[in-house]
Amino acid sequence: MKTSIANFRSFSILVIMAFVTFSLKVVAQGGAVEDEGLPLVLIFLLPFILLSLFGVVWMILWPAMFVWGAVFSGAKVERMHEEANQRRDSLRKRMGREILNSIDGGYRTDVSSAGLVHANGVFGPSHWHLMIGFVNNLIGGSVTVFQQVISAGRAEVMQRLREQAEEDGWDEVINVRIDTASMTPQSSNTRNTVRGVEIFAYGTGIKYE
């Protein structure tokens, strides 16, 4: 995210402080509000008020969503992996074989047409998973939670590639490559940005005569 959450929080504190001092001043003047002064101040403060509202909503929303993630995200990842595997199996049964190959070759000679086919997905661990991963990182060894998220994502993307190939009418996909790229740049403040990896699979679809 370009606009970090920490900024919203500090904005909200600033705006609340400004309002408190402003209203104290009004009260000290005997409750008489200046006729032209107030709307001008409001217009000036409007973007900050919106930001502060977002900050307040975020403060309520974040713990609720964190708990939701803690309860359901692990099962959700497993379900995604299972579902992708089921779709893969049914597609294999339908086509009669596995249509993805990572070698450049091995196809029959009666090829009528060829073309690029690609599929992608961006997957991120939940904040609960990040916390478990942090503890896991201190202990060392394999960080299972992240591995689960990424392998589920990869299974899903491979299945999307198969479905895309089927939709485009290719009989086989050769020379399949899988790229994994982090969505979080190295230089950014990693505390307040979206954590996720992009998985991208591409290959050459070929159609037989």
């Binding site: 995210m1 370009k2 606009t3 959450i5 977002f54 929303l61 974040w62 969503m65 964190f66 939701w68 993630g69 359901f72 995200s73 959700k76 990842v77 995604m80 690609h118 992608n120 997905g121 961006v122 997957f123 991120g124 661990p125 939940s126 904040h127 609960w128 998973h129 998220v149 994502g153 899903e156 969505m183 979206v194 954590r195 996720g196 992009e198 991208f200």
Partner: peptide
């Protein structure tokens, strides 16, 4: 971006970014 940030709390696929990268590609 904000919606993706919210989705990131509970984890899973960030559909907005999937779309973004698909379009850009």
């Amino acid at each position: 971006d904000i919606f993706a940030g919210l989705k990131n709390i509970v984890g899973g696929e960030l559909t907005q970014y999937t779309e973004l990268l698909q379009e850009s590609r």
